Simulated assay, not measured.
Amino acid sequence: MNNSQMDFTQRVVIITGGAQGIGRAYALEFAAAGARVVVADLNSDKAAAVAAEITASGGQALGLAVDVSDRVSVDAMVTACLEAWGQVDVLINNAAVFSTLKMKPFEEIDVDEWDLVMNVNARGVFFCCQAVAAAMRERGSGKIINISSSVVQTGRAHYAHYVASKGAVVALTRALATELGDSGINVNAISPHGIVTEVPRDTIKPEQWDAILAAQALKRKGGVTDMIGATLFLASDHSNYITGQTLNVDAGLRFN
């Protein structure tokens, strides 16, 4: 999808986990479509670098440090956004713990690792949604896009905490769509699969990729650009009559 078809001029978009991978791609594409972008990430230096990249190209961006698992940090992020631009039009809950996880039987996942994954991947989404709700309600509109995963439906083994956290994202999306609909706020999720970024991963071996690609209708790996069209669509006015849905971006791995 050409972002020229999606005009986000003067709209404010918060992207958590925006400093690398898919989050960075979101930040650059929304900025290219005219949005004012908050690049929020635990890594403040990388967030600032992406924001500088946008401003150097003539766009508007803020690079902010945020720990989405911490309510005070999330509130500070949203406050900084409102102080700068006075509104929040789109929230993309992209931050997650994934690439650093080691596959293991669920009996071997200790409570600290379980809590880390749930705190970032599930509680972090909850906190961010809470933090933007008042500003969106005041304007009578808003788009919240939560990033889930194909593992919710495939039940991928040896990732029990990650699967559970991303399942919570889908359930929360449905609950918030119901609660926020009266305020004109759309809440949807995207469920990606097989997206390759510059972030290193060693959890999928070459032979596993062969099996994954064989199960897909489209026989190729995905890239960050494959996520952009779906996200721009759900953030735009073209999706105003869609809420509470989970959009699979997965090369036809699953059919609803």
Rank of each mutant, 00 (worst) to 15 (best):
N43L: 08
S44I: 10
S57Y: 01
L62R: 03
N43A: 15
A40L: 07
G17Y: 01
A19R: 05
R24Y: 02
A52M: 05
E29I: 00
G59S: 13
G21P: 04
A35D: 05
Y26K: 06
L28N: 07
S57R: 13
E53H: 07
N43I: 10
S57T: 15
G59C: 09
D45F: 06
G63H: 13
A56V: 08
T55E: 11
Q60H: 09
D45P: 04
V37I: 11
A27D: 07
L28A: 02
D45C: 03
S57M: 12
S57Q: 15
G21H: 09
A25N: 02
T16C: 11
K46T: 12
I54C: 10
A33T: 00
S44T: 04
N43H: 14
D41S: 05
A31M: 05
E53D: 15
G34A: 07
Y26C: 03
Q20A: 14
R36S: 14
T16A: 12
E29V: 06
A33S: 15
I54M: 03
A25P: 05
D41N: 04
A19I: 12
T16R: 06
D45Q: 10
K46P: 09
L62Q: 09
I22H: 01
A49Q: 15
E29A: 06
G58M: 12
N43E: 08
V39E: 05
K46Y: 04
A32Q: 11
R36V: 03
A33W: 01
G21R: 03
A49F: 05
D41H: 06
A25M: 08
A51Q: 04
V38P: 00
I22Q: 07
Q60V: 04
G17W: 14
A51L: 10
A52I: 08
A47C: 06
L28E: 14
G23L: 10
A52L: 06
A48D: 15
V39W: 07
G63Q: 08
A51G: 09
L64W: 05
G18Q: 07
V50E: 03
L42V: 14
A51C: 13
E29H: 12
V50C: 02
